[in-house]
Simulated assay, not measured.
Amino acid sequence: MATHLITGAGSGIGSEVARLLHERGDTLVLLARSHERAAELQEQYAGARALVADLAEPLALEQSLAAGGLPERLDSLVHAAGVVDLNPVADLPAEQLRDQLDVNLVSPVVLTRFCLPALRAAGGLVLFVNSGAGQTAHPGWAAYASSKFGLRAVADALRGEEAGNGVRVTTVYPGRTATPMQEKVHAQEGRSYDPSLWIDPFVVADTVLHVLDLPAGATLPEVTIRPFSLRPGS
Score class of each variant (00 low, 15 high):
R191I: 05
A39T: 10
F114L: 11
G25S: 04
R19W: 04
E23M: 08
S146V: 07
L230Y: 05
H4I: 09
N104K: 09
E36V: 09
L74N: 01
Q100G: 07
E189P: 02
G140A: 06
V52P: 00
V110E: 12
L31M: 11
V89Q: 01
R19V: 06
A80L: 05
A218S: 13
T219I: 11
R152A: 12
Y173P: 03
L101Y: 04
V106S: 01
P58E: 06
E161Y: 01
G175N: 07
V103Q: 01
P195F: 01
A94V: 13
P215M: 08
T171V: 10
Q44D: 08
A187L: 09
L55Y: 06
E62V: 12
T219D: 15
D99I: 05
L59M: 10
Q100Y: 00
D206S: 15
S196P: 01
S11N: 13
R33N: 09
P93S: 13
A50W: 05
L101G: 09
V211R: 07
H35R: 15
E95H: 11
S234H: 13
K148Y: 03
S107N: 03
T7I: 06
W198G: 07
H79T: 03
V83D: 10
Y45Q: 10
D85Q: 15
R191D: 12
V109N: 02
A133Q: 11
S107E: 02
L214F: 03
A60W: 03
L65E: 02
T207L: 07
R49C: 03
T171H: 00
F114H: 15
L59C: 05
R168A: 14
L65T: 04
S146K: 00
E95M: 11
R226K: 12
V84W: 10
V52E: 04
L55F: 06
G8E: 03
A218V: 08
P195Q: 12
L212N: 01
E57H: 14
G217E: 12
D213A: 13
G10N: 05
N165G: 11
